[in-house]
Nucleic acid binder design. Structure first.
Lengths: 204, 204
DNA sequence: ACCTGTATTGCCCTAAGATCCAATTGAACC
DNA sequence: GGTTCAATTGGATCTTAGGGCAATACAGGT
């Protein structure tokens, strides 16, 4: 999934710009998908391969800024490279503070854009790697029963079985059984590993 | 140390700007220290209290951008708010990518600047908290003897005393002694806590 | 009624970790 | 030469953790 060919999404209302950007991006061996509006992009299917978004700031209908907000709201955080012909400093600063990876001005320097794209793709690969790992761990957590989850969260704070048993009002033996299942389901070979897994999914 | 009154450093070559910014910042109860050049700021003592830097981009001698680089190189990462009368988009983007917290244009809107300053101060407080914690943990690690450190790093991977003893060519008994000292010196009440400490200082 | 998953507990036994006491060796330092 | 510290090991004891086997209980679904 991560070794697929990266895709660059281009959203611009001018057909000539789309064509020229697509040609440039294809020339370095990357896949391209173009959209003539933010709406059109929002209605497309999220990509499974590493990707980034090259986005015109000013467009009829939803602007590039609107799209950035919208993607942020739905939690689809793809690296965004803005390109614009009219932007001002406050606009560029706002988008950068919201997490854009770059902000280029038209006419865009080809090498600058390609560099930005490569950085963005790398960044996306990295976040996909991390997310994938978190998801895998979270799935294991989800497979725990309610009781197992309780024991889990207390175990990783360093509490002894005895204390956990007292806290949850059960016998020490029961704690041991749950604890053992937790280690199994979480695929942890040791308490140390279990703690690391817990930290990665925020069960502190 | 963190509950001291925050300090805002102002670096601008124009005296009038310094005076006006200082007056504004003082008016909301913050301390101010002004500098007429980047050099002057670099030669001052780093602050112990939460602080941020309000920095003019264009100045004779070292520019604001140069100062940002220099501070980055020496690892003094104070939140920086740029202000400028002449800046362009690429410049603002470059500084933001390098970690500036804001980039405002002259004449600066007073409320915008104060908002930016408060955000920057909060950010600095946060990084100071985190750094302080890391430093405290690192000091404990530094108090470990070489052998204890070795045992430490193996313990937090989840290895058993027996395995550690074999790996390091010592008896299991010796491992236990080192391990016990590690728990003591690291002030960890349990293996779970020890693992958390190890992760915070990057001993994975 | 029957089966499954979850939760619970008891007893027993082994392995592992924690603690306390005690001792030896070598290197560094005064 | 004496002191201090790091590293090492042994023994004895106690506490924890983990696993096996067996059993009870309850809820939901077929």
């Amino acid at each position: 999934m991560n070794d697929e060919i990266p895709v660059v999404f281009v959203v611009d209302d001018e057909k000539a710009v789309r064509k020229s950007l697509a040609r440039l991006i294809k020339s370095v061996g990357l896949n391209v998908q173009t959209f003539s509006s933010a709406r059109e992009f929002l209605e497309s299917d999220p990509s499974d391969s590493p990707s980034c978004l090259v986005l015109d700031v000013r467009m009829p209908g939803l602007s590039g800024l609107d799209l950035q907000n919208e993607l942020d709201n739905v939690g689809y955080n793809i690296p965004i490279i803005f390109i614009t012909g009219y932007g001002d400093i406050p606009m560029s600063v706002r988008t950068m503070k919201r997490g854009a990876t770059d902000f280029l001005i038209k006419p865009v320097n080809e090498q600058d854009l390609l560099d930005a794209i490569h950085r963005a793709i790398e960044k996306d690969k990295q976040t996909r790697r991390e997310r994938g790992e978190i998801r895998a761990i979270q799935q294991r957590v989800d497979s725990l029963t309610p009781r197992e989850r309780e024991v889990f969260s207390l175990v990783v704070t360093g509490m002894l079985n005895k204390q956990i048993a007292h806290d949850l009002g059960m016998s020490e033996k029961t704690v041991k059984v749950h604890r053992s299942r937790v280690m199994d389901k979480m695929q942890a070979g040791s308490l140390a590993e279990l703690v690391k897994l817990a930290l990665k999914v925020g069960i502190v």
